[in-house]
């Protein structure tokens, strides 16, 4: 029924091939060189991957559509650098599948948000933004603090991330749910494993203020606190001298 048993006549095929040709060449010529960009991009040997908790937080950020109002891309413009911090480098989002650069700033840029505010501030802000910023138009996300974080499938998340190129180790994948728990419960035995696998600089805290239960609020705040802090590359003077437009 959907069979294609009609004689394909030359004009139609010509048109189809013409459109495909003209339309695809532009994209290929422009995009293909970008896949060799790692050859020119700044190196960042100190770059670490997201912990399972941060990744889960990132997924909440995506799920709630935060990217529709917040960018994570500081442009190479003086006022942006002074308002938000050093401009974003390509290397900083090299593990971001997908990137969350955004295209609209209904709220401020978040690329350098990490450690700018306390955990308490974030929790209060998410529960009701107008409690801390009276003029804010951001929606309230109180339900995050009530919702338990799903961790059983985090191993699969890390595995899929590895499949698209993020260097997660087997140990990281195997311990993903425990690491998520440990990162938000500093006194639990699981906390040590997180530092061991993701580095000493990893923040291990009860992000939502409640060490015993792991909520979506924990994950989101953990993610917000790591924004711009996976590597120090952008803070190094060389980097900024190189890329001034």
């Amino acid at each position: 029924m959907f069979g294609f048993h009609y004689r394909l006549e030359r004009k139609t095929i010509g048109m189809v091939l013409g459109i495909i040709g003209v339309a695809s060449i532009g994209g290929i010529v422009e995009i293909a060189p970008l896949f060799t960009i790692h050859q020119t991009v700044e190196a960042a040997p100190d770059m670490r991957v997201y912990t399972p908790l941060e990744l889960a937080g990132r997924n909440i950020y995506i799920r709630e559509g935060c990217y529709a109002c917040h960018s994570q891309m500081i442009r190479t413009l003086r006022d942006e650098v002074e308002r938000y911090g050093p401009y974003s480098l390509a290397v900083e989002s090299k593990y971001d599948h997908p990137m969350l650069w955004g295209s609209k700033r209904t709220g401020p840029d978040l690329a350098r948000l990490g450690e700018k505010y306390s955990d308490d501030w974030h929790v209060a802000h998410m529960i009701n933004p107008r409690d801390v910023v009276p003029e804010s138009v951001m929606p309230a996300y109180a339900f995050l603090a009530r919702t338990e974080l799903r961790t059983d499938d985090l191993g699969k998340h890390l595995k899929a991330q590895r499949a698209v190129g993020v260097p997660y180790t087997d140990a990281m994948i195997a311990n993903a749910p425990a690491d998520a728990y440990g990162q938000a419960s500093p006194d639990s035995p699981a906390a040590e494993g997180v530092v061991e696998r993701y580095g000493k600089a990893t923040m291990v805290r009860a992000f939502d203020g409640k060490p015993n239960d792991l909520t979506e609020m924990d994950a989101l705040v953990a993610y917000l606190q790591i924004l711009g802090r996976l590597t120090d590359a952008a803070h190094k003077p060389v980097a900024s001298a190189e890329k001034q437009p």
């Binding site: 390509a90 593990y95 499938d153 899929a160």
Partner: peptide, 23 residues
């Protein structure tokens, strides 16, 4: 790449700059 056949979640094949340009 979906995280499993039983999940709605997937991760984009591209990251960072390439993902931005493709998008």
């Amino acid at each position: 790449v979906p995280i499993s056949w039983g999940s709605a979640k997937s991760y984009s094949l591209f990251a960072g700059v390439q993902d931005a340009m493709t998008e």
